[in-house]
């Protein structure tokens, strides 16, 4: 079994590292710092950490004000509470102002598990993606999360960073670099492409292994930058393989799958099927069982890729 680390843990560690190098970095949390792991920063830099209590709207506005005063704020909470709950505060005080505020939502998707649907953010990328000026990032593993934190501090304009509660396999070494608007091929292939973000990247890699047993060559593309989207890596995959299966721990409405569909459609290119929640809320349970129940597990990705290839061969 390969090493596993939760991206929220890496977020907290990277933030503390960043704080050491940049005295302008500050952090805020809304009574969840032990869960989002901003507590790691707080322990190191108590004077630069602001506990805002269970009052997310005020946390978002305060982060905006800190940015106006020249600081680089990172405001974290569960992904449901720092996106949908405070959508208008993010829209007006942060995105419309176009401030250098970084929002980190932990506990995204079904990976949140037993807490159930109220605590599983499954629309967060969709709603954040609609906001002008806002970038949306969903890192796949520990090293990528650390790179995202450092890149976000440098980035002009607001960034939404999406992490998960669950431990996930380590995919990259510490030399891995994240860039806004860039995806990367983690496993090359020629028959079908699996474009995934976050926790789904390792599942896509496992699905590619299953496909390989049937002599199907799957390309696995890591898409941490949901917005801006790496359009060229998608169009290339659409032309070089038979089609794309998008994989996200999120609703199929408005997230990675939608972003890919928009790109393909506007460029009159490619075939797509989407793995994600299909217009339903999640529920309590072990994440492993939830992924299976909602057709988002490794087998579902495998089946979706096979069906896509069958449909294509039927067309020819």
């Amino acid at each position: 079994m390969s090493e596993e680390i939760a991206t929220r843990q890496s977020y907290g560690e990277a933030l503390a590292d960043l704080g050491e190098r940049n005295p302008d970095v500050v952090a805020l949390d809304a009574d969840l710092s032990k869960s989002t792991k901003s507590a790691i920063f707080a322990a190191k830099f108590p004077e630069r950490f602001f506990e805002m209590g269970v009052a997310e709207a005020n946390m978002i506005g305060t982060a905006a004000g800190l940015a106006i005063s020249g600081k680089i704020p990172f405001a974290s909470s569960f992904a449901v509470f720092c996106t949908g709950r405070v959508f208008d505060q993010v829209r007006v005080s942060i995105a419309y102002n176009n401030l250098n505020v970084n929002i980190c939502g932990s506990h995204s998707g079904l990976a949140t598990g037993a807490d159930g649907a109220t605590h599983q953010a499954t629309e967060d990328m969709a709603i954040m993606r609609t906001l002008p000026n806002m970038s949306v990032v969903c890192p796949a593993d520990s090293a990528e999360t650390k790179s995202v934190v450092f890149a976000s501090a440098e980035h002009k304009g607001p960034v939404y960073i999406r992490t998960t509660r669950l431990k996930t396999p380590v995919l990259f070494d510490s030399s891995h670099k994240f860039s806004f608007g860039k995806g990367n091929i983690v496993k090359d292939g020629t028959d079908v492409s699996l474009a995934a973000c976050g926790i789904m990247v390792s599942k896509a890699l496992d699905a590619a292994e299953l496909l390989k047993k049937e002599n199907i060559s799957a390309r696995v593309i890591n898409m941490p930058s949901i917005k801006p989207l790496d359009e060229s890596i998608i169009l290339k995959a659409a032309s070089e393989t038979q089609g794309i299966v998008s994989c996200e721990d999120h609703s199929i409405i408005g997230g990675l799958g939608s972003a890919i569909a928009e790109t393909l459609s506007e460029n009159n290119s490619g075939r797509l099927s989407r793995i994600g929640l299909r217009n339903v809320f999640g529920e309590s349970g072990d994440p492993k069982d939830l992924y299976k129940k909602f057709s988002m597990d490794v087998n579902s990705i495998y089946n979706s890729a096979k069906k896509l290839l069958q449909d294509r061969s039927g067309e020819q």
């Binding site: 630069r48 709207a57 978002i60 305060t62 905006a64 004000g65 020249g70 007006v92 005080s93």
Partner: peptide, 25 residues
Amino acid sequence: VESSTGSLGQGLSVACGIALGDRLS
């Protein structure tokens, strides 16, 4: 104009953030 406003209720939070940042600096 220091901050975009118009959706009511948001300005005092922004002002708090500025005051915190200025004090920190």
